[in-house]
Simulated assay, not measured.
Amino acid sequence: MRIAVMIAASVLVAGCSQAVDGQARLTEPARPTPSGTTRASPPTTTAPPPTSAPAPRAPVGEVVRWIEAAPPAEPGGFHTANRDGTSTDLGEGVAFTTPTGTSKCITNSRAEGALTCLVDLKDPPPRPAEVYGEWKGGWVDFPGATLDVGSAHADPGPFSDGFGVELPYGRALNFGDYRCRTDPAGLFCVNYAHQAAARFSDAGIEPFGCLRPVSPPPDIGARFSC
């Protein structure tokens, strides 16, 4: 009987550790490995969201956490486009504009809802020699697996119905495979299907995640691809 009591006491001592505040804390028992040895369980901590806009070449996970940290905007107010005082219902599509008006974005119904933006770039890609028609260096197509900057367009395309309302700073908008957040540093958007993201600002287009610069087709100014 005495031996059993001593064994029980030893188990209780092994199951507790002394914290720096002097209080006894119950610790998780070690888990056996296939070889029969024991190994302490790793801590299960979650990284807090970044407190400032992601820097260039930041990991895409950091970009996603920062975008998701913003309170969601009510999506119902972004399903219309306005042109010369006339509003057009976009159905499930969305349109929005950054507070400075630098980026105007819309989902392209002719491209399976891919995100298309007009960005007022300070230094847009120059017109390629092979391109004819009206060159728009700030036209950005972001379907997810690719990100194209600069292309020629004979008509307004998805912007024929105008532009969307302002997406305020510090708010995030969910639509399709995307989530976008506005900030004074620029517009940040992630495409969850491809784990690719981009920042749109007048200083340029910054890719994140799997997007890497590649040789563009003859009619595109610059291309990034997964």
Rank of each mutant, 00 (worst) to 15 (best):
C226F: 12
P216K: 09
L118W: 10
T46Y: 14
A55S: 15
Q18M: 09
D120N: 09
P75W: 05
D148N: 14
S225H: 14
C105E: 04
G204R: 13
E112L: 15
C189D: 10
W139D: 11
R179M: 08
Q195A: 14
V13F: 02
P126I: 12
R212Y: 01
L211F: 06
E62C: 10
T116A: 10
I106M: 13
A222H: 07
A111E: 15
T88V: 00
T86G: 02
E166R: 11
P59N: 05
R83Y: 02
P32M: 06
S151F: 00
Y178V: 12
G150H: 06
S10N: 02
I7K: 13
S17P: 05
E206C: 07
A55N: 13
P48V: 06
G77E: 12
S10E: 03
V190S: 04
A40Q: 01
P34Y: 00
A69S: 15
L147T: 14
F78K: 13
T33Q: 15
K136V: 00
Y178L: 11
Y169S: 07
G101Q: 08
P218I: 03
Q195P: 01
P34R: 07
P49A: 15
C226G: 14
V190C: 01
T100Q: 08
F142V: 04
L147Q: 11
V60F: 03
S17D: 06
T88M: 04
T146W: 12
N191W: 00
G209D: 07
P48Q: 05
V20N: 03
A69I: 05
G176H: 10
S109M: 03
P156N: 01
L26N: 06
R31K: 12
Y192L: 12
W135D: 11
Y169N: 08
D161W: 05
R25E: 07
N174S: 13
P184C: 08
D84E: 00
G133W: 07
C189I: 11
G61P: 11
H194C: 07
D84W: 05
G36I: 09
A95D: 04
V5L: 15
